[in-house]
């Protein structure tokens, strides 16, 4: 229902959603959007961010040796690999992105 908010990357081994249909911008859409932004967007972003930190931990543990941190024998991490293939790129990007204290503010 709340397709004004599109998160196009499946965060973890999930099927990609079909591309969201183009939608017309009605007044009610706009109002709903504003209300969503006002009431929920910050919380949703914060939740996603907290989740991202969890995911870091998770990815690091499962695929750490991809970055040169050998954490466990890769036998079982290979089992997980297929599901996280779409995340690897953004995970690495996030991990290596410059991060400043002012980036921590949102949420």
């Amino acid at each position: 229902m709340s397709d004004w908010e599109v998160i196009p990357i499946p965060l973890f081994g999930r099927k990609k959603k079909e591309k969201e249909e183009e939608k017309k911008e009605g007044v009610s859409e706009a109002l709903k959007g504003v209300l969503y932004g006002f009431a929920v967007h910050g919380a949703a972003t914060a939740a996603l961010k907290t989740r991202m930190h969890m995911e870091h931990l998770f990815m690091l543990m499962t695929l750490g040796d991809m970055l040169g941190f050998p954490i466990i024998p890769p036998y079982y991490s290979l089992k997980i690999l297929p599901y996280v293939v779409p995340n690897i790129k953004s995970w690495k990007e996030r991990l290596f992105r410059e991060r400043d204290f002012t980036d921590l503010l949102s949420g």
Partner: peptide, 23 residues
Amino acid sequence: MYLDGVEYFPVSRYVLYGFQFKS
């Protein structure tokens, strides 16, 4: 450019307006 679904992702201007105002 850096779309990652966490920090970077496009949000409609209505949602962002509501978010910005609330913040």
